[in-house]
Each structure stands twice: as structure tokens, then as C-alpha cells.
């Protein structure tokens, strides 16, 4: 299996994860979606030095990963390409912010290090929450929820088709890569000189395929409006659960729960 095939398999596994049977999966995407947005906004709103306050926010995704039977390890593995970028965001902070915030033994910890860690954690927590949303709902249900939240149909359809188009392009790329390697057995990757024609061909082939899929859609009555399936309507109980969780997020944001817990023992 080449790397593109592997990536494609992982991509499709995301959809399969959404088919699982758990309370998290049954929880309507219509509530999960705004809840995830609130969680991310809450996480992002923490002060750059509020590391201990932020730390408690990891409990929410971890709890729901457990409840949904979704592996945290798989999540971090799948996010391996994005995580370094997220982590790199604050990498220069220790150089610019040298004010000492705390001491551990003889070691001075500067504000730069704390803010770097805070930024990294914010990124990781946000990605984990987004992953949890997609892995427990699937793109179809998320799009259905977006429509019910009155996000314009054009944007939602664009999101859905872009998501689908990734697989179309990846499949073509996988076939082309296999064909290339079969005729270039000693090469590790694709030679630089072939990149231009390779990408050009990939684009043309993907366009042809997308065109055929578009025709297939039109032949079956598509006129710009998608009918999404699988979305369970949100009950009052679901909304109340959502509000309670959102309230917990805000509580954790306003009160440093880690410090409160610590004060019980110190």
C-alpha cells in the first residue's frame, strides 16, 4: 500500500468511526456542533499564562473519547501532520518573553515557556475536539446540522463536496503513483522533473472524474440541494445536556478548577 492509499484508508476510517454505536455518536450533531465551537472558543479565550486553568479543559475531550470508544492515540496519530504546525506557533515565545513567572527549584521558568505551552495546548485541545466531532458524527450529519443552523446551502454543499473531492483526487493520485513506481522501481519518490506533468495529469484526471460524478448527480435529479441522512433530531434533553456542558466550559474558564482542587489538599 503506498502512502496515498494509506492516507485514503485513514480518511475513510473517519467516516467509519462515525458509524459506531455509543452515547457520543447518538448525541445529535445539531447540539454537538455548537458545543464544539463553544469548547474551542473557551479554550482559545484562556490567558496566555493561565496554564493551570487551561489544563482542566483536557478532561472534556478525554471523557468523550472514552465514552465514544474513540482512541486518543489514533486521534493523535492521525493529527500527526497538523500537530507540529500547531505546536510551532508559539515556538519563538521563549526568545521574546523572558520575564520569570515561576521557579521550580533553581530553575527559572519564563513567561515565554508558559505561553508557548499554553498555545500548544490550546491547539491540541481544539484539534482533539474537532476530531471528536467528525469521528462521532461524520461529515453528512455535520453538514445536516450546519443547514439546520441556517448556514447557507452553498457553503455547506461546498464543504461536503470538497470533503468528497479529497477522496476522488487521492484515489487518482494513488493509481498514478502506483503506475509510476511500477515503471521506476528503484526510485524512492517521484522525481522532481516529473512533478509538473504528474500534477497536471492528476488535475486533469480528477477533473474528468469529477465531471462524470457531476453528470451522475444531475442524472439523478440533483439541482443544488442535498438531502442529508442520518441526522437524529435534537430533543429537549439533548439541548439541556448541551447547555449544561457549555455551562461547565464557562465555569472552568471563569474559575481555575485546578487551583481550586489543589487548594483542597494544600
Amino acid at each position: 500500500m503506498n502512502k496515498i492509499d494509506q492516507a485514503l484508508t485513514e480518511f475513510r476510517e473517519m467516516d467509519e468511526l462515525a458509524d459506531q454505536d455509543s452515547p457520543v455518536h447518538h448525541f445529535p450533531a445539531l447540539v454537538k456542533l455548537p458545543l464544539t465551537v463553544i469548547y474551542i472558543l473557551t479554550v482559545l479565550s484562556f490567558h496566555k499564562y493561565d496554564l493551570s486553568g487551561l489544563f482542566v479543559m483536557i478532561l472534556f475531550p478525554l471523557f468523550f473519547f472514552q465514552l465514544g470508544g474513540i482512541s486518543v492515540r489514533r486521534c493523535l496519530y492521525r493529527l500527526r501532520y497538523v500537530l507540529p504546525l500547531v505546536m510551532a506557533v508559539g515556538i519563538l515565545n521563549p526568545l521574546f518573553d523572558r520575564s520569570v513567572l515561576l521557579r521550580i527549584g533553581n530553575v527559572n521558568i519564563s513567561g515565554g515557556w508558559i505561553s508557548m505551552l499554553t498555545l500548544m495546548m490550546k491547539g491540541v485541545f481544539s484539534l482533539m475536539a474537532s476530531y471528536l466531532l467528525v469521528a462521532s458524527s461524520g461529515i453528512g450529519r455535520i453538514c445536516a446540522a450546519l443547514r439546520r443552523l441556517h448556514v447557507p446551502a452553498v457553503l455547506v454543499t461546498l464543504l461536503l463536496l470538497t470533503y468528497r473531492y479529497v477522496t476522488v483526487m487521492s484515489e487518482e493520485a494513488a493509481v498514478m503513483t502506483d503506475a509510476y513506481h511500477l515503471r521506476a522501481p528503484k526510485q524512492k519518490g517521484i522525481e522532481y522533473s516529473a512533478w509538473g506533468s504528474f500534477l497536471g495529469q492528476l488535475l486533469l484526471r480528477s477533473m474528468d472524474r469529477a465531471d462524470e460524478i457531476w453528470q451522475a448527480m444531475q442524472l439523478r435529479g440533483y439541482h443544488g440541494h442535498f438531502h442529508y441522512v442520518g441526522e437524529t433530531p435534537a430533543s429537549l434533553k439533548d439541548w439541556l445536556t448541551g447547555i449544561l456542558l457549555a455551562g461547565l466550559f464557562v465555569f472552568c474558564r471563569c474559575w481555575n478548577v485546578t487551583a481550586l482542587l489543589g487548594s483542597l489538599f494544600v
Binding site: A216, G221, Y222, V229
Partner: peptide, 16 residues
Amino acid sequence: FMPTVYEDMIFAPRNY
């Protein structure tokens, strides 16, 4: 072009 057989099958009837 849909992810599952079922979703593909409902595509046209729902559009009509």
C-alpha cells in the same frame, strides 16, 4: 458517489 449504498439509493428519490 455517496459514502454508502443506502445514501446513494435515496439520492434520486429525495431529489424528486
